[in-house]
Computed example of a mutant assay.
Amino acid sequence: MSRSKAAAVLLAAAVLLGGCSRQAGSQQNEMILEETLEAPEKANYKTAVVERGNFTKEVAGSGSVVYPVQAELRWTEGSVRFDEFYVTSGTEVSKGDVLARFTTEENQVALEEKQLALERAQRDFTLGKQQRQDQIKQAEAALNGLSSYEARIQALNIQKLQSQYDQYVYQTEYSLAAQQEEIQKLQSQISETVLVAPFDGIVDSVVSFNQGDKVDQSQVLVTMYASDRLLISAEDAEGAYRYNMPVTVQIGNNDEVETYTGRVISASNILPAALKQGQALIELDGKLDPALAKRKVAVTGNDVDLHNVLLVNRSAIKKDESRRYVYVLDGETVKKRYVVEGENNMSTTWILDGLTEGQTLILD
Rank of each mutant, 00 (worst) to 15 (best):
T193P: 02
G63I: 03
A274D: 15
K336G: 04
E283C: 08
T261G: 15
F85G: 06
S315R: 15
E34M: 10
R337F: 03
K137I: 12
R132E: 00
K296H: 13
L363F: 04
A139C: 05
T47N: 04
N157G: 11
Q115W: 01
L73G: 03
Q28C: 09
G63C: 06
A12I: 11
L284Q: 08
F209G: 09
D97A: 02
Q162Y: 06
T126W: 09
V220T: 03
R323F: 13
G201D: 03
A48G: 14
G342N: 07
V247R: 02
Q180L: 08
D285R: 10
A240L: 09
Y241T: 03
M1D: 10
S208T: 14
D285Y: 14
R324M: 12
E105C: 04
V220S: 09
L143E: 08
S89M: 08
K42I: 10
N313T: 02
G342S: 10
T349Q: 00
L230I: 06
Q108N: 13
L292A: 05
S79H: 11
A273C: 04
I265D: 06
Q131I: 01
V194G: 10
E321P: 08
K160W: 09
T259E: 09
F82S: 02
A240W: 09
A293I: 00
R295A: 06
G262R: 01
N54F: 07
K160V: 06
L116K: 10
N157T: 11
V98H: 05
A316T: 02
G61W: 02
E238G: 07
A291K: 12
D204Q: 12
N244H: 14
V194N: 12
I202A: 09
Q187M: 12
L195N: 01
A178M: 08
S89R: 13
G128P: 01
N253G: 12
V339M: 04
